[in-house]
Amino acid sequence: MSTHGVALASGAHGFLSPTGVEVAFLLVGLVTLGAAVLTVTTRQLVHAALWLVVALGGLAVEYLLLTAEFVAWVQVLIYVGSVVVLLLFGLMLTKAPIGRSPDADSGNRPVAIAVAGAAAVALVWVVVDAFRRTWIDLRGPVQGSTEVSGEMLFRYWVLPFEALSVLLLAALVGAIVLSRRGKENEAEEPRRKEEAR
């Protein structure tokens, strides 16, 4: 049934006649990709975090275009809302320089370009070769609304969901344990520093 459906779908779509959704997806994708490239290449550390906001927001719009509404809003809430704020806090707490820093890239930049370029060529080649004649059918009922997501999450995926909450608790406790000083260390540390001098 599936091969028949795919054949029908490929007959109904033209390769070079993009629909409105495709055009929107392409434009937002270009913005997202440009913001991602700026994130990894800019020399101003705080600007990298702000470009990351653009990239993650663009991805949220892509999720909306793919009719995954709930995932899109979770993306906005968690990534744009909290992860980027955490990253900015981290940048400020490690006293990252404001303005251009000349040593933002390490010495192995050519190797990184080579590896990333080779990976990009290989992945794009394989993906294009595999999914040249595949179309997503976006018509019909919305597949990622809150109702659908809640039903699948709490009907089929309850056990992983609960395990996830345990994992989040473990991460919370771990972060607290890592970031507070031990009491015995606190008393010894100044003495150790003076000895080191």
């Binding site: 990709l33 040593d103 990333a116 990976a119 997503i136």
Partner: peptide
């Protein structure tokens, strides 16, 4: 919608991240 649009975008984003992990010096940028 053609499936290769999201697939190619995902591949290119992954490679951008790969470049960043390999080339960046600051741990937070990694």
């Amino acid at each position: 919608m053609h499936l290769i649009y999201p697939a190619i975008l995902a591949a290119l984003l992954f490679c951008t991240g790969l470049y960043g992990v390999l080339a960046r010096r600051n741990a937070i940028l990694v």
